[in-house]
Design a protein around this nucleic acid. Structure first.
Lengths: 249, 249
DNA sequence: CTAGCGTATAGAACAGCGTTCGATCACCGA
DNA sequence: TCGGTGATCGAACGCTGTTCTATACGCTAG
């Protein structure tokens, strides 16, 4: 996979320069696809069965086509995953299009970060692929820029602005990577309830002993009761408090 | 892969209950291995060629054994990766064994976070696998606890302690995931120098235009000049400042 | 109307992967 | 001496990403 060129949504880019469109002016051929259809179906598979579930054969079957056809739109599985991740970012961008009006710039940063986070909920596969793309994929850059515009309104040096935006983005990705992997197979299947799982985990922490793991022991109840989204916002607010303090002098 | 049991280093755990040891009392048999040898060699391969480079056949060749033998020590590739990640964490723990003496607890948290971060430098494969393990692998939990002990010294509620430690860990992982994916293949191979790559990227950002991407345009020079480790510390300090402020009241 | 070209579809074939399985070996207590 | 157990090994299986070639369709030139 190349990363030395910024890939915009519609134009250039190796074998994937082929645009969708599918239907021309008249009827269709054998089976008409499009880049958008390929990627949205890929996202659907990823959401249902995760990254291991996304195979070219499974995707082809779902599109009612052959494996070879997919390679007309996408040159490798890496590119497929990149485009899938980027298409999710497009949704985040749409949701944060209005941002930039709040008198407090940090409130806007917060809104963007939360929208970004929420897009990763129930999408474990995104965590690993996000920042991999954000460097070169257009939607990742746009999101980065959108957050940066708000930070520019603060009284910070350029370097401080750069560091602040990078920190917030890294934090969101880190939380996403964590949260995504959390519930094991048994819980996803429904074989074990979430409450049972949490209770088991708490019991196991307790068994480790207070002497050897005082913090874990101390925190066991909080773990059992905590809400992921709430914890994300709590951490985000700590980071934003640091930024605000820096901007204040 | 199960995640409902905490896997300690030496004891239970499915097929991998088999401990190393290798040499018994006398001479060896055909070829004597050990769990430690398998995992340290796996880490070596991961460091050299990344996750796709780690195959059972490559690992077997390097150990001078057959593929089947590896399954005696490890029950799947997932477990191999988990143990590899956890073995790196063991190094972080060794490096932070002394921590806990600073009068300022936050300085200790900082030291642990930096040691953790530094272990991820030049180990792109770690990012994706870290927090996946830290929930159930013993070294991940130990690291979590070690950082938590320092936070316990602060004037925070249990919930605040929990959130603070989780935030710092997530931030480190997020940065690691980012930094790991950054240099593309050409740079790693040496075909393109790092300076050239950065210069190209800056030029491409400039081409996007100041109107559409004001922040990126503004930051282009900073990007070209920035140091990853420095930026990590800058972000970490923002987060720690927020924690300190919360502890102060 | 048709010849031909570019776009797009389709599936057979290939190398390589993780994983399973049975055969084999080395040691050890009886 | 002899099973039994711990450990090693490689052939074999099913599946994967990817490549290749053949084919069908729509459009335009003549």
């Amino acid at each position: 996979m190349r990363r030395d060129e910024i890939v915009t949504g519609a134009s250039q880019g190796g074998a994937a320069a082929r645009r969708g469109g599918g239907r021309g002016t008249t009827g269709r051929r054998r089976a008409s696809h499009s880049l958008e259809a390929v990627i949205s179906e890929a996202v659907a598979i990823l959401d249902e069965s995760g990254e291991p579930g996304l195979t070219f054969r499974a995707l082809a079957a779902r599109l009612g086509t052959g494996v070879g056809s997919i390679y007309w739109y996408v040159s490798s599985k890496d590119e497929l995953l990149e485009r899938a991740a980027d298409s999710v970012l497009a949704g985040v961008l749409a949701q944060t299009a209005h941002v930039g009006t709040d008198p407090d710039p940090i409130a806007d940063v917060r809104a963007i970060a939360i929208a970004f986070y929420e897009a990763t909920v129930n999408r474990p596969w995104l965590g690993a692929y996000f920042l991999q793309d954000s460097g070169t994929q257009i939607n990742g850059l746009t999101l980065y820029d959108r957050m940066g515009r708000q930070v520019m309104r603060l009284d910070l040096t350029r370097r401080q602005q750069f560091d602040a935006v990078s920190a917030v983005m890294a934090f969101v990705v880190g939380v996403a990577a964590d949260r995504g992997q959390d519930p094991p197979q048994e819980v996803r299947d429904g074989r074990v309830s979430a409450d049972e799982f949490v209770a088991d985990f708490r019991a196991q922490i307790r068994e480790l002993g207070e002497q050897d793991f005082p913090f874990l022991f101390n925190i066991a109840d909080e773990f059992a009761a905590h809400d992921d989204a709430e914890q994300f916002r709590a951490g985000l607010d700590l980071l934003l408090a640091g930024i605000r303090q820096q901007a204040a002098g």
